[in-house]
Nucleic acid binder design. Structure first.
Lengths: 217, 217
DNA sequence: CCATTTCTGAGTACTACTACTCAGATAATT
DNA sequence: AATTATCTGAGTAGTAGTACTCAGAAATGG
């Protein structure tokens, strides 16, 4: 046994998986110890073996890439995760960042970018596909606003924030009322108070606001 | 007179215009016969002269780049159009494609990419900034779905899909009506037809659906 | 003890969207 | 020439959410 970096590659598309494995094998420091085609198998291997880097496709049978991360996150993990995906979905990107995923690579990137990503993550740094830099900038901006400004969400009470979260999940007032065991009138009042505190107005104003700001809820 | 390719450059920002003209002048096959600062002048020159390629900024005084294209589209035109813009707006991109624009370049691209774009369009091929390839892929996917699948978005018409996109951007029916220059009743009917085709029902059903599926629009 | 905040519930008016029907104009297809 | 699809516009009814006011109960804090 050498001190090579152990890598797991998970992608349900054989051709893509082979491409990934081949390009990684060309690096002498790297050792692909497993390549699998679904999330469940990937999770099993990660839990039972000493995997340094796990390269996970987002769309996989049985368990997607993020679910794999979520299920290993609980225990003390030594594995770092890299998500590979075809789609630039901002919500998925946000969720991946929250889960501590260190690499996020689009399949439209060159294969060599994947190697760059692996090396970067191994150094403990983030590697995000350039095409997603927009999202990163957005989040940074959000955090700044959140830290400094008192205007908005910070002034909401606990109940109000809970309701706003449910609104962001596209629940109707009736559904929220049922979930919290209160009258729909109460929810209506809370929604109004929230609207006033956040200074949002007009049709579906809360729903729109909640969706746009759900990352800071 | 030689048989050089005649080019018009339109951009209201003098510095950008100079940069574009300079880089194009370095190509011996190309001849910049006019550089102007607003859409109206650009349109006039295109109509009265023999312009092969028109490089149009999107945001210009008096008449924007797409409006210039729209106004020359009617007559038998010999000019091919390339739109240059700062913003990645999917709707504008879609509209440009519908108008038959052959090139779409982001200002964040390298200047040399513009030359590549000009040469590509001259060959009769499309040139789209790589950063916008996502949008192109989306459209392709929609067409595939359109051909095969009967369930969902694929069955929507172009207008319906455009409206659904605007809904996903949280525009109200009134805003959409204004944007598309039609009655709000028309938008209402389209929304209803979309709801039926997608089999979604209830309050804000379309908005919820549009937001959840906006990646496939 | 009193004041404030928060949560709860209700009444009322208005607006936006959904749900349904109808219909004329246009363009493409058979 | 007739059919079909699409886009356009309108009418009408019902529902959800916004906007505003009022008010009682419980908890917090001076």
């Amino acid at each position: 046994m050498s001190d090579k970096t152990t890598i797991l590659v998970a992608d349900d598309h054989p051709l893509v998986r082979k491409g990934l494995v081949d390009i990684i094998r060309e690096e002498s420091d790297f050792s692909v110890v497993a390549d699998v085609g679904d999330g469940e198998t990937a999770l099993k291997i990660i839990k039972e073996n000493d995997i340094t880097l796990a390269l996970l496709d987002l769309d996989m049978p049985k368990m997607n890439g993020l679910e794999v991360v979520r299920n290993t996150n609980a225990s003390n993990r030594i594995t770092e995760f890299i998500i590979v995906t075809m789609h630039k979905d901002e919500n998925i990107f946000d969720e991946a960042m929250e889960l501590g995923v260190m690499g996020f690579v689009l399949k439209e990137s060159a294969l060599l970018d994947v190697v760059t990503c692996l090396k970067t993550v191994l150094k403990g740094e983030y590697y995000i596909s350039p095409a997603l830099s927009t999202y990163m900038m957005k989040n940074r901006k959000v955090q700044e606003t959140n830290a400094s400004g008192t205007h908005g969400i910070g002034r909401l009470t606990q109940t109000e924030r809970k309701i706003l979260k449910l609104v962001a999940e596209m629940k109707s007032s009736q559904e929220i009322a049922d979930a919290l065991f209160v009258s729909i009138r109460t929810i209506g009042n809370h929604r109004n108070n929230i609207c006033n505190k956040l200074d949002v107005h007009g049709a579906n104003a809360l729903l729109k606001y909640a969706i746009e700001h759900k990352t800071m809820l």
